[in-house]
Design a protein around this nucleic acid. Structure first.
Lengths: 346, 346
DNA sequence: GTGAAAGCGCTAACAT
DNA sequence: ATGTTAGCGCTTTCAC
């Protein structure tokens, strides 16, 4: 209740100057250890708490990292965020998080809010909408580092943290082909975002690399489980039926898989299916879903670390344009048409 | 690059005083409309951005809400957070989020950081460790409202947002009994946290209300999928085998269910299973898991709204001790021993 | 309708 | 090892 204690109150109480108190509180080396002890005791006694605005106003630093993501309630994203928060917290930074909900307008508003809040650095994963990255260049102008992860801009000066989408898409598709699939389908968003574009190119490259294989794309509005069910209905109408389906995320893949089963299609017998992200559901659905493991936590950790190193003046990451993390195809039941070594794992 | 523009720069440029510029920027009524226009144009021209520290330092407000949760990467929690972020954002508040990782030490550190950062309000879900809620009373002392959700303190002055854990646990257990289960097992944490304690009491009440039923508790270290698998192994050793199992979350329930199936136990034929939270996996696992729908998003929205209304001086929530949201048993396949109307939903 | 002046609480030169 | 001083950028009385 009532007035806040300040360093002046401590200073008065102990007959010291404010600067000595300030130094003592920060653990400055030149301060007599006894003085420090007294200051700390007094601070506790009068319920002093540091006023970060005043401090920020002076130091022009906030110890805060801004994070803007499309949405935070996906399995993948919450892993990324958890990783970032941990690193930030270990290094004395706060994180402020906001969601763009895939709207580039909202994304811009969020960016401006972060800008006015003077975040020390920014971590962004872009919307799938056509992105106006201009709102982020303001940060660069003020020497506030920005890093991107997952959904990154087509070109930027910033460090980006991604996986090799085209390569793993290639691997996934090749795996289907290796399982004797010849009529391949890739279900994805009609988006120019790097992640989808690259998965498409990986898919197409694998199809082209194997004579006798046909590949086509099916675009969906979004990649929810419900969309996946709709996809299954579409698939049932195809002539001939595809025998291998690679879906751009696990939610949609699982929706599709379950609906196909309901319709009497055997998975993987009639149609092999592969998802993307290695969400928990992929290990739960029956048959277990082959998927691409996307190291979300690690991505978050790397992104936050690089940002913080940059803030601490360690420039090593400054010249790194792109950090590619290792994603990997996890083969489970849903794609194994041939009788090979079927691993089981939960 | 370089220096930040301040209101003084604008003032100089236009031959005004800083106070006039400040008023103009805030849309003060007494300012000449022409003056305001000029100020706004100039602000844009010289890339002025308001310095929130200086402003906060003066006004003693931050427009920031702190959120402390055990961890943010669970399905339930990310839904809560998404709801909170939305409400906050709509009302011009930022959210800063931190994880306690179930450590009350970390929780206290986080609380202190939030305290020093002068959050305008705080939203907390407690750790399962014995909670030292003292670190939160500092907020009340300074008239910073704190609300809790899900894991709430045993007693506090704050508004809490919860579901009726004991009631839904009672419902779940009764449902099992209605499905002819007589040997019941409740798998949960040995914790004094309200959520687990109440689920236990609901379970026990239902068992006692039905003569001829036996109930026992099985405590686990945590409620991960792996723990659920361990539970299945324990269950296999029980004599007699339980025929109805109510698990305190879906992760562990699914782990248990799958392992039981591997061991040749029929679910629900031999053992009926019910989980808690209605995570996405509950709809995916086969058989689909009966669970309790916990309205996470709504909980988050309610909590954030109440906090903000409180901050805006609307006291309506101030005297509300507890808001109980509606949770509901969702009956799926895993609990239906008897041939009744089996609903299917994804 | 606008200006002058003080001060929010802290930190960092500079001085001793 | 400690004190003095000035100022970060804004808001807000109080004056005119």
């Amino acid at each position: 209740m009532g007035k806040e204690a300040t360093i002046y109150d401590i200073a008065n109480e102990l007959n010291l100057s404010a600067s000595t108190v300030s130094r003592a509180l920060k653990g400055n080396k030149h301060i007599n250890i006894e003085t420090r002890k007294r200051v700390e005791r007094c601070a506790k006694k009068i319920h002093y708490r540091s006023n970060s605005f005043a401090s920020n106003l002076r130091t022009q630093r906030t110890n805060t990292i801004g994070i803007i993501v499309p949405r935070l309630d996906s399995s993948f994203m919450s892993k990324c965020l958890a990783g970032m928060e941990e690193v930030a917290s270990e290094n004395g930074y706060n994180v402020i998080i906001s969601q763009s909900h895939e709207s580039s307008k909202k994304q811009e508003r969020n960016a401006n809010t972060m800008f006015n809040n003077r975040v020390d650095g920014l971590i962004v994963s872009l919307t799938i909408e056509k992105n106006n990255v201009a709102c982020f260049s303001r940060f660069a102008d003020k020497n506030v580092p920005v890093v991107y992860f997952d959904r990154i801009p087509d070109k930027s000066e910033s460090t980006c943290f991604v996986i090799e989408n085209s390569k793993v898409a290639y691997d996934a598709t090749s795996h289907l082909i290796g399982q004797s699939c010849r009529n391949l389908l890739h279900v994805t968003l009609n988006s120019n975002a790097n992640v989808y574009r690259e998965r498409i190119s990986g898919f197409e490259a694998a199809v082209e690399a194997n004579t006798g294989c046909a590949g086509r794309l099916l675009y969906v509005k979004s990649l929810t489980m419900e969309d996946g069910q709709g996809v299954a209905d579409e698939i049932m109408k195809m002539e001939p039926l595809p025998d291998g389906v690679f879906v751009a995320n696990d939610q949609a893949a699982v929706g599709c898989l379950l609906r196909l089963k309901e319709r009497g299609i055997r998975v993987p017998g009639d149609i092999a299916i592969i998802g993307f992200n290695d969400d928990p559901i992929s290990k739960i659905v029956s048959p277990k879903l082959t998927s691409v493991h996307y190291p979300g936590r690690e991505t978050g950790i790397m992104a936050a670390k690089s940002l913080i190193e940059n803030l601490n003046g360690d420039e090593s990451f400054n010249y790194t344009e792109k950090v590619v993390l290792n994603a990997q195809l996890i083969i489970r039941e849903s794609s194994q048409k041939l009788e090979t070594n079927v691993k089981s794992d939960i």
